[in-house]
């Protein structure tokens, strides 16, 4: 597989505390990669190592199949979790400054800033100072600064914290568009819904160890429990229930329905297929609802973390 970034056996210790313990991750080119983990798991340390802000004690990192080089910061855009801007500097001025620190020429930086400012409809902020803007507004500016130098790899640490839903939507849209344009996106979060929505790949870090990684769909397939939720209408619910109970492991289910359904969750064993279950149900009742229970990332997260606790 073509990986943009490969981290091999990364260790990082702070005194007696181990922040990363043999963490290896492969990030495929053009993917959206979610780095999950509870607070304090070591996500930010890992991102800082990729950004060469901190150096790993052991391990190697490859960008584009070459060992990471100090000049590679030009190819990386980083939006840290702890982010801010100079309070007393004008928006345009400091955007220019930060863009030039990433290696853009003054004219290039200006041109691209104009493009982005127009795109996000913030052109009239150019001469304002950050202290006059709200937190969400300032974060829009930070987002622009992160993507301005068109990096191959974009790293967002908790990108949606502090955004109102409207702006979070805008940023989400922009992230996906950047992916379309060929960028690879790595973002870390402890909010599972955003992973569900955006990520193709994910890795789970807990207490300095990587517990799990891979394609999101594959992981989900691995974690599914062969359980189906069904909504049934039958003339004699009691006999149906007794009959089902004999054959399957039943549970209660709750989903929204317009019918007066008998709501059940049915777990199949390995030998039985969904088709067999469906055939059986159709012969006994009217089937209004039939859905495979796919574990959410949140479920997987909780399950994995408690397993390793």
């Amino acid at each position: 597989m073509d990986n943009l970034l490969v981290a091999e056996n990364i260790y990082k210790r702070f005194g007696s505390f181990t922040a990363l313990n043999n963490v290896s991750v492969q990030i495929p080119r053009g993917s959206v990669f979610g780095l999950l983990g509870p607070n304090g798991a070591g996500k930010t340390t890992f991102l800082r190592i990729i950004n060469q802000i901190t150096m790993p004690d052991e391990g190697k990192i490859y960008l584009d199949n070459k060992p990471l080089h100090p000049n590679d910061i030009q190819h990386i855009g980083y939006l840290p979790e702890e982010r801010g801007l100079y309070k007393s500097m004008k928006v345009g001025e400091q955007a220019l400054y930060l863009a030039r620190l990433k290696g853009l020429s003054k004219n290039d930086a200006k041109e691209r800033l104009q493009y982005w400012f127009e795109k996000l409809e913030i052109t009239d902020w150019w001469d304002k100072k950050i202290q006059e803007l709200s937190k969400g507004m300032a974060q829009k500016v930070q987002f622009v600064i992160t993507v301005l130098h068109q990096p191959k790899l974009l790293i967002f640490d908790e990108p949606f914290s502090g955004f109102d839903p409207v702006n979070a939507g805008i940023i989400k849209r922009e992230i996906l568009q950047l992916k379309e344009e060929g960028a690879t996106i790595l973002f870390s979060t402890h909010r599972m819904e955003s992973v569900e929505e955006l990520c193709d790949y994910m890795a789970l870090i807990h207490k300095s160890n990587k517990l799990l990684d891979g394609k999101v769909s594959e992981i989900k397939r691995e974690y599914k429990s062969n359980t189906y939720e069904v909504g049934l209408e039958a003339e004699n619910e009691a006999t149906l229930l007794a009959e089902l109970q004999e054959k399957f492991v039943l549970g209660k289910a709750s989903f929204r329905s317009i019918h007066n359904d008998l709501k059940l969750s049915i777990k199949l064993n390995e030998k039985e297929s969904a088709n067999q279950l469906l055939e059986f149900l159709i012969s006994r009742a009217r089937v209004n609802y039939f859905v495979e229970v796919i574990p959410s990332v949140n479920d997987i997260f909780i399950k994995t973390v408690t397993q390793h606790a």
Partner: peptide, 9 residues
Amino acid sequence: NRIIEIIVS
């Protein structure tokens, strides 16, 4: 200001 991490990247 929390700008430091943006700069040191």
